[in-house]
Simulated assay, not measured.
Amino acid sequence: MSIVILDTKCSNLLSVKLSIEKLGYNPIITNDTKIILKAKKLFLPGVGSASEIMKILSSKKLIDVIKNIKCPTLGICLGMQLLSSFSEESNGINMLGILDSCVSLLNTNDLPLPHTGWNQIFFDNYNPLFKNISSGSWFYFIHSYAFSLNKYTISKTLYNIYFSSSVQKDNFFGVQFHPEKSGCIGEKLLLNFLEM
């Protein structure tokens, strides 16, 4: 099986790769269009600046490639936010536009920003991403921007207000947390995605 991690030049590429290898798979980190188009599973990791990643994707002519991918695709953290139509970050950035929803700065009130550390995800409906994972499970987060609750939300998390901690539209999945930093429960989620 061809497991591809899109090379977004972000700092979590290696940790995602190692987590997948631990599960018995051999992922490839690349931005080669020919390899991406043959993927059976695609990971879209991201940490840092949305504008920088969008510049990279644009320069490599990958925006339309990603939007038209038919295999299961998992955006992680900023990789999830890239699925949006627009982000408020850096005075506003047009994103991939896969989900007709925007990303905005978390309304944390007096809570620290970025939202960093372990928090729970809650869901009401079964999704294959959460096979054998209980609602209320704890995952590791680090982010300042997020999707509000919307029609694509498949789990939510409370940090002053509820936000979308995971989303899905067709073959595109996104998780705001870092499964590769979330111990056994994160490994289970990655395995669920790989076994879809």
Rank of each mutant, 00 (worst) to 15 (best):
N94S: 14
F122W: 13
K131P: 14
K181D: 09
L14F: 15
V16D: 01
P27M: 05
L78E: 07
C102Q: 15
I20K: 01
S148P: 12
L99A: 00
G79R: 02
S148F: 13
F123V: 14
Y162C: 09
D100Y: 04
N132T: 10
W138R: 10
C71S: 00
L106S: 00
G186L: 05
I53T: 13
N160P: 04
S85P: 03
N26S: 14
V47A: 05
K70F: 07
L83N: 08
E89M: 05
F163C: 00
S164D: 03
I93N: 08
K131D: 11
G136A: 04
I142E: 03
I133W: 11
E21S: 07
N171W: 09
I66E: 07
G24W: 07
I154T: 03
F122T: 13
P27Q: 06
Y140G: 03
F43R: 03
N31C: 14
F141Q: 07
F147C: 01
A50F: 10
E180N: 02
E21F: 02
L111R: 10
D124H: 12
L158G: 09
S11P: 15
S135A: 06
P128F: 10
L158F: 12
S134T: 15
C71I: 06
S137P: 02
T108N: 15
N127D: 07
S49E: 02
I185M: 05
L62Q: 02
E180P: 09
E195Q: 14
P128Y: 08
G75C: 07
I66D: 01
L83G: 00
V4W: 10
T33S: 12
H143T: 04
G75K: 00
F193H: 01
Y140R: 08
E180I: 08
K67R: 12
D7K: 12
T108P: 14
D32C: 10
S85I: 13
D100A: 01
S58F: 13
S49A: 09
S134P: 03
V103Y: 06
L44R: 02
I69E: 08
Y145V: 08
L113G: 12
G75E: 06
F122H: 13
S182L: 08
F163S: 09
T157F: 04
K70H: 11
L158V: 11
K22G: 06
L158E: 13
D170T: 12
E52Q: 14
F177P: 06
C102A: 15
P45H: 01
S15K: 02
N91H: 15
I29A: 10
M80E: 04
N12E: 04
L111W: 11
I69G: 04
K9A: 15
S135R: 05
D32R: 10
D64G: 12
L23W: 07
S58H: 13
N91Q: 14
I133L: 03
G79V: 09
Q176Y: 09
P114Y: 00
A39E: 11
G75D: 05
K70I: 00
K70T: 02
I66L: 10
I29E: 00
F43E: 03
C71M: 01
G79H: 07
F122Y: 14
D124Y: 12
M1H: 12
L191E: 13
W118I: 11
D100M: 03
P45Y: 02
E21C: 03
G186M: 07
I36L: 06
K61Y: 11
V47K: 00
V65D: 00
L189V: 11
V167C: 01
